[in-house]
Simulated assay, not measured.
Amino acid sequence: MGETEYVFVTGGAGYIGSHTVLELLNKGYQPVVMDNFSNSCKGCDSASQRGIPESLVRVEQLTGKEIIFFKADILDKSALRKVFSKYNFLCVIHFAGLKAVGESSTIPMSYYRVNVGGTINLVEVMKEFGVHNLVFSSSATVYGEPQYLPLDECHAVGSCTNPYGKTKYFIEEILKDLHHAEPNWNVFLLRYFNPVGSHASGRIGEDPLDAPNNLMPYVSQVAIGRRPLLSVFGDDYPTTDGTGVRDYIHVVDLAVGHVACLKKLHDNPGLKIYNLGTGQGYSVLEMVKAFEAASGQKVPYKVVGRRSGDVASVYAATTLAYEELGWKAERGLAEMCTDLWRWQSSNPKGFASTVD
């Protein structure tokens, strides 16, 4: 790689974002990160003198490379223009947005304003500055209740069970319309399944601001003693042990998938949709047992009623990403759990922990 290739990363201080920034640095790209700390503000009080949040300070320490950072909001178009006026971006990787499924049902207008409105702002500024390459952080929630398994990219979308999933679906539709009208755009819609784990160093990981919305951060917080027990929502599903089955993917594999998209830009691929998952489903209780084995800690749980909108089983078909991107998940369940425990045990209070 000769001339510096700048990549704009919105929401790059968050869980998936920070791991992707690390992979970008390792591959020779120069990430320019913008974040407003809405999902990643723990540790902001320990930000460096340059104003960089703790998650990215640690990425710099791990890579020995510097991150360009702006604290700003994607709803602030003037802030976006300011960043774009400084750098000639190869591509934008767009993570920024509100992401709590339950919360989205209580404050849906905030989710539409931030997720959909923010993306429109971003795309309009990209057009102004002649940047036409975009990698979008979508979600398997766009599929709704599976009509068949494994879920492939041809499965029907739009039957979303919550406003968060609807924002991802609406953004996908907006970006499809954009590409149809302006075929010079290269757009990747990456449908994530369930990211877990952390960087193998244990220095960066998932740090939920409040009670975790996802299974494995909750499991790890029970194991470390931050929470008394895990609630398992339903044990009467038609699965091996009655608990819900999901496709869990190591966050580092997910981050590597974004870098694979950047490599694909040389082919001018147009609009592409890829599942990023492992193709393997695990039940809630299988995940608990795997984490207990990796951590040596007991994770007490109680079975409670099903949650509205939950389905029995969801897992991905991953052939397309392998055939077209040369990408597949390399890290298995044991590694996911071991790395998650390394992060949680080294940082019992997340980025707010004092770590020597």
Rank of each mutant, 00 (worst) to 15 (best):
G2P: 08
E3F: 05
E5H: 12
T10E: 07
G11N: 06
G14Y: 00
I16K: 00
S18Q: 07
H19N: 15
H19F: 06
V21I: 12
L22N: 08
E23G: 01
E23R: 11
L24N: 06
L24G: 07
N26K: 13
P31F: 04
S38Q: 13
K42R: 12
K42E: 09
G43A: 03
S46H: 07
S48C: 14
R50C: 07
G51K: 04
G51W: 08
I52A: 12
E54H: 03
S55K: 04
V57P: 01
R58W: 02
V59Y: 06
T63C: 14
I68S: 13
K71F: 12
K77G: 09
S78F: 05
L80Q: 06
F84H: 08
K86M: 14
K86D: 14
F89R: 05
G97M: 05
A100Q: 10
G102P: 09
G102V: 13
S105R: 08
M109N: 12
V114S: 11
V114Q: 10
V114Y: 03
N115I: 05
G118H: 02
T119M: 11
I120Y: 01
N121E: 09
N121C: 06
M126D: 09
G130D: 06
G130L: 10
V131K: 01
L134G: 06
S138Q: 00
A140S: 14
Q147A: 14
Q147L: 15
E153T: 12
H155S: 12
A156S: 15
A156Y: 11
C160I: 09
P163E: 07
Y164G: 04
T167H: 06
Y169P: 09
F170R: 04
I171D: 05
E172W: 00
L175E: 08
K176L: 11
D177N: 14
A181M: 07
P183L: 00
N186C: 04
R191C: 12
N194S: 14
S198H: 04
S201P: 01
G202W: 03
R203I: 01
I204K: 03
D207G: 08
P208K: 05
P208T: 11
L209V: 15
P212H: 05
N214K: 14
V219F: 02
I224V: 12
G225D: 05
G225I: 07
R226H: 09
R227H: 13
V232C: 08
G234V: 08
D236K: 13
T239V: 03
T240K: 15
G242M: 08
R246C: 10
D247I: 08
D247G: 08
D247R: 05
V251Q: 02
V256F: 04
H258V: 06
V259S: 10
A260L: 08
K263M: 13
K264S: 15
P269D: 00
Y274S: 01
G277E: 02
G277W: 01
G279P: 10
G279E: 04
G279D: 06
S283L: 09
S283I: 05
V284C: 11
M287D: 07
M287Q: 12
A290D: 04
S295K: 00
S295D: 01
Y301G: 11
K302C: 15
K302E: 15
S313L: 14
A316D: 05
L320A: 13
Y322S: 11
E324I: 03
L325F: 03
K328A: 15
K328F: 14
E330T: 13
E330A: 13
R331F: 08
A334I: 06
M336K: 03
C337N: 06
T338V: 13
W341P: 05
W343C: 03
S346F: 04
K349L: 14
A352T: 09
V355K: 11
